[in-house]
């Protein structure tokens, strides 16, 4: 199977939900994201409770720089858009276009991670380590958990794309691409909240 347009399969619309297995995966993944939402909700709540507890370390106001995180936000939001294009291409059974858009998504994800690593490196230079204060622990845990999700997403989508050269778009693979894109949207949404609650509130709220 070449992986590009396949006349026999093109007859099935929405290949990600064409089989019971696909439907199960689709629904199960939504539930998983529900659980993830609660997970991040708990992290956010804890961060809010501890954001002023800076002990002897630096505060949010002293640390954060808006331009840098704004750039991160733009990058991640753009990657969400490219993953939408990838899924649209998938529904049309255009494997090449899908791969292109997903690879762009992966690159943007890597750029985001690079910026995050740079940012953390800067903070460490300003003596803002994981063990500095309750605020620092909560900050690194929340933002770091999100970063790990991005990293996992990058690895996951890359792995799916490498497979897609061989397996193409079928009712077996389509649900996988689809839930990976869902996952990617989810971590983008989480980032929007991080940007607002952690960075904007940190800079503006003093």
């Amino acid at each position: 199977m070449s992986g590009t347009e396949n006349a026999g399969l093109q007859a099935i619309p929405n290949p990600e939900k064409a089989t019971l297995e696909g439907k199960n995966k689709f629904l199960g993944f939504w539930f998983f994201l529900g659980g993830e939402t609660v997970l991040f909700g708990t992290l956010f709540a804890t961060f809010l409770a501890l954001r002023d507890k800076v002990a002897s370390g630096p505060s949010a106001h002293e640390l954060f720089s808006l331009p840098l995180t704004f750039l991160s936000t733009i990058i991640l939001l753009t990657s969400s858009l490219t993953s939408v294009f990838a899924i649209l291409a998938m529904k049309d059974y255009k494997a090449g276009a899908m791969r292109l858009w997903f690879w762009i998504t992966v690159l943007l994800g890597l750029a985001f991670l690079g910026l995050e690593i740079y940012e953390f490196h800067e903070y460490l230079g300003e003596h803002f380590g994981f063990t500095t204060s309750a605020f620092s622990s909560a900050f690194y845990t929340l933002v770091g958990t999100h970063g790990c999700h991005v990293l996992f997403g990058v690895l996951w989508i890359s792995e799916l794309m490498l497979q897609s050269y061989k397996k193409g778009i079928t009712t077996v693979t389509a649900p996988k691409y689809y839930v990976a894109a869902l996952y990617w949207h989810f971590i983008d949404v989480v980032w929007v909240f991080i940007f607002t609650v952690v960075y904007l509130l940190g800079i503006l709220g003093g």
Binding site: K53, F130, S133, A134, S136, S137
Partner: peptide, 22 residues
Amino acid sequence: LFFEFFDHIFHANFFNTANGGN
């Protein structure tokens, strides 16, 4: 449990009153 894990193994401050934890 991750908070307790970080506090106990990596000396984070979620629950360490001395460094602002609660």
